[in-house]
Design a protein around this nucleic acid. Sequence first.
DNA 1: TTGTAAGCGTTATCAC
DNA 2: GTGATAACGCTTACAA
Lengths: 349, 349
Amino acid sequence: LRNRLVSDRPGRSRITLADVANYAGVSASTASRALNGRGELSPATRAAVLEAAAALRFRPSVLARSLRTRTTFTVGFVVPDIASPFYAVCLKGAQGALEEAGYRVMLMDSEQTPEGEVAALQTLLAHQVDGLLVATTGLSTSTFAAVVDRATPCVFFDSIVPEAGAGSVTLANGDGIDQLVDHLVAHGHLRIAILAGPQSETSGSERLAAFAAATRRRGLEQDPGLVRSCRWDQDDGRRATLELLELARPPEAVVASSAELALGCLAACRERGVSLPDELALVSFDDPYFGGLLEPSLTAVGYDPGDVGRAAAALLVEAMQETGTGTRQLTIPVTLVRRRSCGCPAGVS
Amino acid sequence: LRNRLVSDRPGRSRITLADVANYAGVSASTASRALNGRGELSPATRAAVLEAAAALRFRPSVLARSLRTRTTFTVGFVVPDIASPFYAVCLKGAQGALEEAGYRVMLMDSEQTPEGEVAALQTLLAHQVDGLLVATTGLSTSTFAAVVDRATPCVFFDSIVPEAGAGSVTLANGDGIDQLVDHLVAHGHLRIAILAGPQSETSGSERLAAFAAATRRRGLEQDPGLVRSCRWDQDDGRRATLELLELARPPEAVVASSAELALGCLAACRERGVSLPDELALVSFDDPYFGGLLEPSLTAVGYDPGDVGRAAAALLVEAMQETGTGTRQLTIPVTLVRRRSCGCPAGVS
DNA sequence: TTGTAAGCGTTATCAC
DNA sequence: GTGATAACGCTTACAA
């Protein structure tokens, strides 16, 4: 095992396994085995290779390895809008869990459109990602199937494609809305409006459906004018609230389907001089981290979006490792945080 | 050019260029040329290849291509905490600009530690990213140089490594702090404290330095006890504020170096029953999107973090395409938004 | 225990 | 114009 000089590498950009092997005086395959701890080989050779690799500061080419092994240890992450705190925190949770399992994440933003989402999935598949984590904007089962082959496991979170993927993680949308409506009823409200999100997304439609069911069950007023479906953005919430306030008979209370929509509602009320919670009660699905510092402080059902990301990542890792496990559905629970926007006195929570 | 039957593909996972060539009745090299529009070839062959590719739903292997061409069209994005709205929005801006230029982004979270950052950079380099976008936690020039080879262009944003990289994008930290201090002085405050961020990061140290210079220039009180350096988290801001409030002579006003720190200050004041802005004035570097809805609404210098990401991405794309351009420094301007936490009357802005 | 050789799916350099 | 052929840097039978 003589260390050959590491000469004749003119401008060659990268140190390769061959260089290491050469330096250690062994063949490339032996070097590979030593580095990966596969196969039996003499402690001496192993040590020599390891030393060579260290001396040369060898960094294996992930590309070459992936091409050969047909696995990239990369997962694709697709969300409608990464600037949204919810998705950003999901991403952080997922990234942490994936990193721990040895996976890297490639991020794509679908810009809230199905076309963007399809493009994102195609790009990711062209990169041969080992798995997919997606919060869909509402792809159909058939569209999804046409784009993503069965071989690449996919876990949906927040918003799902029916009968597709290796699993899904969603929030307890129904339970959360129930708690919100119940709480408003406890405050004596009978005429409650909802700021609903996009109906193409699971969390939009499930929350609206739960609202309809809950208000019916409670015998509350059923006025179609009280249901406003819009996108998740703050300004959409603002506009929808403005419309509600202009109704001949405005609502007594509003359920916002997300923190952004609640903020929009707050903004609209401030604009119109409507005082919360006296003239209008407000509760929200999503408890933003500054919820307690708003005026009035926000009553909401909360949860940790990081849990959603972590759970989805865990499911995906499982699906990527064990082949052909049945699809699993997880639900992340939510809990009510009572503050002042609903009409509760200060200092309750 | 007879279309050969596409048979004998048993369980072969992927459709390759060879399949397309075979289907079109040409060689792999011709197929490659047709698909990439390189070299001259007869319109008929080109059409045949394109048709074959479409018929077979051919998706070239990015891996193989990258291995061969030595370019991945992937850039690495490293931030201390992707759950932070600032970085999330930067990411979105950068991602959009990069996507447009044909690049994908691989995300790494350094978890606010130098070790995490080094590991992230190494992973990214092992993936042969074409470029790097990093918000450093404060790596030294030498550490950075030891990890990242000169061949991979790197653009820093928000926080930089001195004398390294192909460029940088920072906020107008000095100007922003000046505006904040000037405004508090205009309100008549002489004893002003600062909630400073980590001094290892550019935006932490520049803001503190600017604060020291501005207060000195204005002849304000220079009390070391009024300077609190901590991490960016809300709870750190809360704790630091609590300490300030317990001083024998508490400050009349506070400059928070970030939105998170301002929220922490708000929380601390609420806890202690200190009323803003009467007992303590507060201004902040960073205008969070809900700044107008807080109680009191927050006076702050604002900017669009997306601009930071977009600018950094533009610089990087330039650096990746033209070789050896000199390093460029960009500064994103900030503007003062007057609301109520500073002592201004309602409805100013 | 170690080496040889084939191959992963492309692109590039030559000939023809 | 088009087709062999040789890399790109790695892993893995199969031999030795």
